[in-house]
Amino acid sequence: MRYALLVQGAPYSSQASHSALRFAAALLARGHNLECVFFYHDGVYNAARLAAPPQDEPHLMDAWCALNTEYGTRLQVCIAAALRRGLLDEREAARHGKSGYSVQSPFELTGLGQLIDAGLGCDRLVTFSP
């Protein structure tokens, strides 16, 4: 089956990201495809490239990136939800005159239309909210 996930919880604030990653691992282990993970609401903080969790905790950011590297899962971040929360890629940072950027590949800033596409195009869209 072709899966997509919607993550709406901030990392380390709620269980949403942890649960979503465990669900992702389980469905991939069973041979399903994970086409994309869409980050919305406070879930956009999962894309913060400067996240520096303590070494004895799971590194959620690295775990998301591994999904992209190993399985080609697209990591899509709602641009409107991200920008107002201070999450900008290099292009948006330049456009808004910011001195640094907080989102980088493999995360991509994109529109909500991608969420609708993923939801209608995949066999299953599973939501993880706080």
């Binding site: 609401h41 529109g111 239309g113 609708i116 596409d117």
Partner: peptide, 17 residues
């Protein structure tokens, strides 16, 4: 939550759903 939920609804409608 409400505002971002309504945004998703508007975008879905704008996509012809």
């Amino acid at each position: 939550w409400l505002r971002e939920g309504l945004d998703a609804a508007l975008v879905a409608a704008a996509f012809g759903q």
